[in-house]
């Protein structure tokens, strides 16, 4: 009988505490947004790598209540070869080592297509390709910012719900 009453107490506590734990966990996920960006193959374009973090930070800071940090990483081209097949080996440790919530990779594919890939902490990746046009360069920062924000939202549904008026 005593054992049963102990069990009931444990079950009761788990019923009370589990939803609280779930809520606390989901809230903590919404508090920060640290992003790493890897930009490759833009040497021939009038496009500064630092313009992307600035635009991302501006959008994220002004309209979402998040702890935001955007870092640009260079020279990771070698590491990112065939990265799609090596998420466990490279992307997850990279995110952990640099304490990032998202890793963003942007590549210009033979001046035909802009390719955006975004990974979240769990290694879930979403991608989007945009055909390059002759006159696209002056819009590149806005385009990349939009693609990144939209993909981040698509992966984790974190931004829209935190949007500020």
């Amino acid at each position: 009988m005593n054992r049963f009453s102990n069990l009931i107490i444990i079950f009761g506590l788990s019923i009370i505490l589990f939803p609280l734990w779930v809520q606390a966990d989901s809230e903590s996920n919404l508090e920060r947004c640290h992003i790493g960006i890897i930009v490759n193959d833009f040497s021939s374009q009038s496009f500064s790598k630092n313009d992307i973090p600035k635009a991302l930070e501006k959008n994220l800071m002004n309209y979402y209540r998040l702890d935001i940090k955007v870092i640009v990483f260079d020279d990771y081209k070698k590491m990112l070869d065939n990265i799609d097949q090596k998420v466990e080996q490279y992307v997850k440790p990279f995110l952990q080592d640099n304490n990032l919530d998202y890793l963003i990779y942007i590549i210009n594919r033979r001046n035909i297509e802009l390719w955006f890939e975004v990974w979240n902490k769990e290694g879930i990746m979403e991608n989007i390709g945009i055909p390059l046009s002759r006159d696209i360069e002056k819009h590149l920062v806005n385009i990349t910012t939009n693609a990144f924000l939209s993909i981040i939202e698509s992966i984790d549904n974190q931004l829209y719900s935190k949007k500020l008026y």
Binding site: S26, V87, I124, I128, S150, I151
Partner: peptide
């Protein structure tokens, strides 16, 4: 928790 069962690749 919106448990995510998606694969690592996806189409946006």
């Amino acid at each position: 928790l919106n448990v995510n069962t998606r694969s690592t690749m996806g189409n946006f």
